[in-house]
Design a protein around this nucleic acid. Structure first.
Lengths: 117, 117
DNA sequence: TTGACATATGCCGATATAGGTATATAATGC
DNA sequence: GCATTATATACCTATATCGGCATATGTCAA
C-alpha cells in the first residue's frame, strides 16, 4: 500500500512547505491566484494544485471575482493540528514532571472535546 | 519529482496518523518496541519503521535496555510545528483586525467547534 | 554453544505524490 | 463572434512512500 492521500487531512496538507507558505501569505489577507504565483515564484499550475489540496482540507476558501479566484485563509481548519501539538508544548517551555503533566493534559483535552461535541 | 522525504522534517513525520499515535503513547512514558506493537496492533516492522522516521526527525530517543530498545518522547522536536500553527490560533480563538473577514466568514463554524476553551 | 527473544533492515508491489507541459474552462473586452 | 486573461485540470515522469514478508543483527539464558 501507499501513503495516505495528502488530501485526507490538515496534517498532510501542511506537510508541504509550499502550502505552508501559501497559508502564511493568506494570513495577511486574501489574494487572487496570480498574486500568489508572483509572490511565491512558482508556476501557475503548481499553485493551483496546492490550493486545491488546501481547499479540500478546508484550509482556504475561494471567492469568484470576475475572472479571478480570490483565496482566503480558513484558519479553524488548522485547529486539529494546534490541539494535537499543544499537548507537547510543556516539554520545551517549562520544567515540569513531564510524565504527569502530559498525562493530565491529554486527559483534560479528551474531556473537553467530548463535552464540546 | 516526487513528494518530499518523510524524514525531512517534523511536519512530514507527523503527517502519518500512526506516528502521531506512537508519540501520543510515548507522551505517557517510555516504552519498548514490543509494547508499542501490542498496544497499536501494528506489525513489528511497521512500528520499527515509523520509529525510525520519528528518530530521524528527533521526535523520539532510544535507550538500549538488554535486548529491548526503549523509546522515549523528545517533545522539543515538535516545537517548529507548534510555532507555526500558533500564529493561526487567533483565527478561531480571538478577534484580530487582520483576520476579521475570515472570522466573520467562519463564525458559525467557530461557535460550533470551539466551545469551552 | 545453541536457541529463543527483540528489533532493525532489505526487498517487493502498489500507489500517491510533486512538478512540468499542454490544454480545457471561464470570464472579460473588442 | 473572437481574442485575451485567469485559473483549473489532464497527462506524464520520477520518486518516495507504506505495508508485507523474509532475514539480518544483537542480546540473553540454559
Amino acid at each position: 500500500m501507499a501513503r495516505a492521500a495528502t488530501t485526507a487531512d490538515a496534517f498532510n496538507a501542511i506537510a508541504e512547505p509550499r502550502r505552508r507558505e501559501i497559508l502564511d501569505l493568506l494570513a495577511h489577507g486574501e489574494r487572487p491566484v496570480n498574486e500568489l504565483v508572483e509572490m511565491l515564484g512558482l508556476s501557475q499550475p503548481q499553485i493551483s494544485k496546492h490550493l486545491r489540496v488546501l481547499r479540500e482540507v478546508g484550509a482556504v476558501d475561494v471567492r469568484v471575482d470576475g475572472r479571478q479566484r480570490v483565496y482566503a485563509l480558513n484558519g479553524p481548519a488548522l485547529k486539529p493540528i494546534h490541539d494535537w501539538v499543544k499537548n507537547y508544548e510543556r516539554s520545551w517551555s517549562e520544567r515540569f514532571d513531564e510524565l504527569d503533566v502530559v498525562l493530565k493534559d491529554l486527559k483534560s483535552e479528551e474531556e473537553a472535546n467530548d463535552r464540546g461535541k
